[in-house]
Write a protein that binds this DNA or RNA. Structure first.
Lengths: 202, 202
DNA sequence: TGAGTGCGAGACCGAACGTTCTCCCTCATG
DNA sequence: CATGAGGGAGAACGTTCGGTCTCGCACTCA
């Protein structure tokens, strides 16, 4: 009953997916073949195609797993703070932690979309969906913090995040994180829960 | 005399490089083969290998051409403005123009480095060299504008540019440009020319 | 006029690509 | 015990990859 007719976890499938995740993230997608993946996952070719319709589905599963991980990490950071502004800082800090962590190789989604420029491709659309979720999430956070044009602030924060993720593996990660977190502070201070409409420093 | 013993422009080579540039930028590098390129350039395989040692050299030539183009565009923008702060704005506006232009597909260098994660690879190093030049250029511009921590401001501006370039082909380009240019204004106002030195528009 | 050369045309190479196939073993359930 | 599904092992599929090869034409310049 416990593992009856419904989908099994399948030890082999888990090895496959975690190996694909590791290699795709570290080396890119088009440049690694299924041979590499099945070899390092210690799985045969037939097993791969028993669990995934093809390489593309493996890529989609990789991105889906990354998406779940980031959502969970973001939710944890969000829940760790009390005030709205602190929630923005906590999410930003969790991003900075990722950039600083060893093996960081940029944003899995930005890297993937660079290899799948066709907007109609499922992989490209998965990236867009993830980004849409993130934009909405941070915009909501900033809105709760009382920022008047929450849309603009959200786009600003996402843009800063994208830049930090892109540069994090090309420059000194510590400097990138410092710049990013200072930029986040700038956003938080630039749109300060206004009583009158806009206008801040001058 | 005009086309003597020195290197010729070689009509075929020019077609090869412009075709490679167009296809690599629009569709990525690993996912297009030399067959595609020689077919669309209307050149035979032998001609390709007569001018380039291999695909990798073609990729390097593509990035070199992109680098020259961006440097020229930046220099033109820089020269078009009088005050230091206006030079920063002019360079930023030229970046925004690129993002808004049809066929924009992100930063050629960020896209390329996503496919060449190995820091020792010539393509990866070409990307780092280009980025180093850009960071130094904008830092110098901001320093001339009298911004006290010019390094931090330069890194901030580069981070914003990276984010804008990454998102420019994934979101509404107009909104991306608006966010980017507002962010640049924020940088210019956040590090306000210490006490005395420059200062132009007040 | 004849040597040199840039280029087109296309055959060809070995390797790697993603994918499908058969065969055999294991093991839980009828 | 019989059965059938899941998985390992690996041969093999056809295609495409990047790269090399020969050959012949058209052109330029000494």
């Amino acid at each position: 009953m416990s593992r009856g007719t419904e989908a099994r976890p399948s030890e082999a499938r888990a090895r496959l997916l975690s190996t694909a995740t590791r290699i795709f993230y570290a080396e890119g997608i088009h440049s690694v073949g299924v041979d590499r993946i099945i070899a390092e996952a210690q799985v045969t070719r037939a097993t791969l195609y028993r669990h995934f319709a093809g390489k593309e589905e493996l890529v989609l599963a990789y991105l889906d797993q990354a998406d779940r991980g980031i959502r969970a990490q973001t939710e944890a950071a969000r829940a760790s703070a009390d005030s709205p502004a602190e929630r923005v800082r906590a999410v930003s800090r969790s991003i900075a932690e990722g950039i600083r962590s060893p093996g960081f190789r940029g944003c899995a989604f930005l890297n993937a979309v660079a290899e799948y420029p066709d907007p109609a491709h499922p992989v490209h659309r998965a990236v867009l969906a993830h980004r849409q979720w993130f934009l909405e999430t941070v915009t909501e956070l900033l809105e709760q913090a009382g920022h008047t044009p929450a849309d603009a602030a959200g786009r600003h924060l996402v843009m800063l995040r994208d830049g930090a993720m892109a540069a994090g593996c090309l420059f000194d990660p510590d400097l990138v994180c410092e710049t990013f977190l200072q930029g986040v502070e700038g956003i938080l201070q630039a749109h300060p829960a206004a009583t009158p409409p806009r206008h801040t420093t001058a």
